[in-house]
């Protein structure tokens, strides 16, 4: 009797394990899980380490047997006040600049990209094909080719060392035009546009009343990509801005790391520069990372929505 139930139980156990791993197979299940977890470690551990690094003084960093440990609240407070107080609060200034630059560039690029992408997908006008090719070519232009002509141009307009030297060039976003073009080309039914035209709606009206309201998934995705590109814009501000009060966070972070020996033990820092350690550098990096992590968490659904690849058909 008891032997009978034990066998039953074992059989049941095998059965439920079978059912649990399903059509992956037991070995396949384990392999899949192992690969996914190894990559989870690769993606997550460096970030967690950096987060903890803001709380650890060099002794803890170099001697701790386990690399992912919390240091101390005191050290965290020191890192915080070191970075907040860096050159009379420039970090907060840079944070404000970053938000303003990214925000204005985002609005400008959306206002330019979406109508252009729409008309390239829907319109049939002379020069359309040329414009598409130029879009591709400008996507490929390397920064090193553009930076000097652009500097001369901005200098001529008197915009060097103003926020517009960063914002205006960033509003030119050929990749966003291409994405809008793909989106409208694949998901806006042409019959709808034609019907509206037959009803006498002007091209502008069709765009405003029909195409724009249909673009919500595109808008989310474009806003995410444009914000991300602008937030991380390094080259423009690095070359076009001399006044450190106008820096954005990436350029500010660069100036902190380049001036101190936080990442270069033994390197002679700029005279008068604060004696920062890794914890301070990690805290400075957190300023550029954390706002974007929040944006990432909220915008992932736009990336997975399929709007990105909607038009790519084999």
């Amino acid at each position: 009797m008891t032997r009978q139930t034990a066998t039953d139980k074992r059989a049941l156990g095998r059965l439920s394990l079978r059912r649990y791993v399903g059509d992956l197979g037991i070995i396949g299940y384990v392999i899949r899980l192992a690969i996914l977890l190894i990559f989870a470690i690769y993606f997550v551990v460096p970030l967690v380490w950096l987060l903890f690094a803001t709380t650890r003084d060099p002794t803890s960093l170099y001697s701790s047997w386990f690399p992912l440990t919390f240091g101390s609240i005191d050290r965290l407070a020191t890192s915080w006040s070191n970075i907040i107080g860096y050159q009379n609060g420039e970090m907060l200034l840079w944070l404000g600049n970053s938000i303003r630059y990214a925000g204005l560039s985002l609005l400008g690029s959306l206002a330019i990209c979406i109508p252009a992408g729409y008309i390239l997908a829907i319109g049939r006008f002379p020069g359309r094909r040329v414009l598409l090719w130029l879009t591709l070519i400008t996507m490929l232009l390397p920064v090193s080719a553009m930076v000097l002509p652009m500097f001369l141009e901005l200098n001529l307009a008197g915009l060097i060392d103003t926020q517009w030297a960063v914002i205006l060039p960033a509003m030119f976003f050929p990749f966003g035009v291409y994405l809008s073009y793909v989106y409208y080309g694949s998901s806006l039914p042409r019959e709808l546009v034609d019907a509206a035209r037959v009803d006498g709606a002007s091209e502008l009206r069709v765009f405003w009343n029909l195409a724009l309201p249909l673009a919500r998934p595109l808008l989310g995705l474009l806003a995410f990509i444009s914000f991300n590109a602008n937030w991380n814009n390094f080259f423009g501000p690095y070359v076009f801005l001399n006044n450190d009060k106008l820096y954005n966070l990436p350029v500010g972070l660069n100036s902190i790391v380049a001036a101190t020996s936080a990442l270069r033990p033994g390197f002679n820092p700029t005279p008068g520069a604060p004696a920062f350690v890794q914890a301070d550098a990690a805290m400075a990096a957190m300023f550029t990372i954390v706002p974007v992590v929040i944006v990432f968490i909220f915008s992932m659904r736009y990336v997975t929505s399929g709007a990105f690849t909607g038009g790519v058909k084999g």
């Binding site: 990559f39 989870a40 993606f43 460096p46 970030l47 950096l50 991300n228 991380n232 390094f234 990436p250 350029v251 972070l253 660069n254 790391v257 990442l263 550098a281 990690a282 990096a285 550029t288 990372i289 954390v290 974007v292 992590v293 944006v295 990432f296 968490i297 992932m300 990336v303």
Partner: peptide, 15 residues
């Protein structure tokens, strides 16, 4: 896997 996308440029090099 998606979140490290927030780390780019100077912050990525630092890390």
């Amino acid at each position: 896997y998606f979140i490290p996308g927030a780390v780019t440029g100077p912050a990525l090099v630092l890390l």
